[in-house]
Design a binder for these strands. Sequence first.
DNA 1: CGGGACATTGAGGAGAATCAAACAGGGTGG
DNA 2: CCACCCTGTTTGATTCTCCTCAATGTCCCG
Lengths: 223, 223
Amino acid sequence: MYVTILGDQARKQPLAALSLKSGGSSETRLKAGSYLYLEGDAVEWVFQIKTGVLRLTRLLEDGRRQVIAFGYPGDVVGFPSEGLHHTDCDVLMDACLQPYRRAMLESGEGDPDLHRNLLQAALREISAMQDHFMMLGRKSAVEKVSSFICVLADRVGTKIDGHSGMTLPMSRGDIADFLGLTTETISRTLTQLRKSKIIEIRNIHTILILRPTALRGLASRGA
Amino acid sequence: MYVTILGDQARKQPLAALSLKSGGSSETRLKAGSYLYLEGDAVEWVFQIKTGVLRLTRLLEDGRRQVIAFGYPGDVVGFPSEGLHHTDCDVLMDACLQPYRRAMLESGEGDPDLHRNLLQAALREISAMQDHFMMLGRKSAVEKVSSFICVLADRVGTKIDGHSGMTLPMSRGDIADFLGLTTETISRTLTQLRKSKIIEIRNIHTILILRPTALRGLASRGA
DNA sequence: CGGGACATTGAGGAGAATCAAACAGGGTGG
DNA sequence: CCACCCTGTTTGATTCTCCTCAATGTCCCG
């Protein structure tokens, strides 16, 4: 999942289409805290997330970290480049994954539909990443955090007490490393949104959107 | 072209492999300043760059701009998402492109080799973009600019007076919008590198690397 | 109940943005 | 051929956003 501009319908549809040929059999279940793969691993499978949340990260030698993406149901993770994984991937919330052999993506022999669907997922990934460039390169802290909440609400939001709300399985540090900020800035920005009565922080991992329009304004136009 | 960490051999190889089935016939020639496609256009072709330099950009309503990538020989541009282009693409240096029907990427009927090569190009794109996230989200101005010069030298550098050098077909503003900085910061950083005798700015569009090791140090470890 | 990890808050500082002014340098027209 | 202009670049002064460092607070789990 990337923080794209609002109204990204594309990413909502893949699950149904892709799950066609899953066969229902060999799904993978993973506990929170476990790793799916590490940078440098040879790619044998790509996975579509059925339930749960994953985290894709890249590390610099000096410890700086970038969260590349959060993986939510419908997302496909594990695309190879030169046959290798280029991120680490671990589990934030217990997950159920549908594995597909790497060959299904790369050649698709035997199942053209599945092949096409995996390819489309890769192409959507490119487009979503392009949007995220704008986020990282050109948006302020308020815009980043507001966008993040909006997108999360659109993708996995539920109604809570009449408001759109969501649970955040990731830490403030994860959000910071995803948006190119620091833990403290995430915290301060959330506090600021809370004090403006735009959001409610029910508990550390639960956020409600009280004023959606105001939040969307901040997401695209800033403070 | 993205600013990846050094030693990204992957992106150097595609030209030869991909050009296999070009047929030598229908190449596209474009003058500097012309547009290849705009955001929202339907995708009919994807292009591999044979010569020249392209610029891929995305715009925000308020005018903020992000340069998504610079397209150099070997790169493939125009990957569709939901059948549409999601960036603008124009020409910085007169270019010669090899067009491939979108269907060659998406289904590949009739030419499995070409299909696979285009797909691999898309997968390399994903990996390169992931690296660029680190750049945008976590690196300082000096690191960004130094990395940019290093990568450019690796990909399109030539020997000039015994030093590795290159010409920059893009403006300072383009570089700024690519790295998530401002024109002024690019200029200041280049001046700083020049005064440290790490680079020489022969003219506005020509840079020589005087101390490659120092530059690489700045690229990965900062000032 | 106590400990540890994570989150919040605060004070101060650094880095890059912004605003503004001088400076090329290439192209055009006189 | 030269003066001029326009655009893009460099440089300077100042501001502001976000980071850093530090302290306090909170929640979860044993």
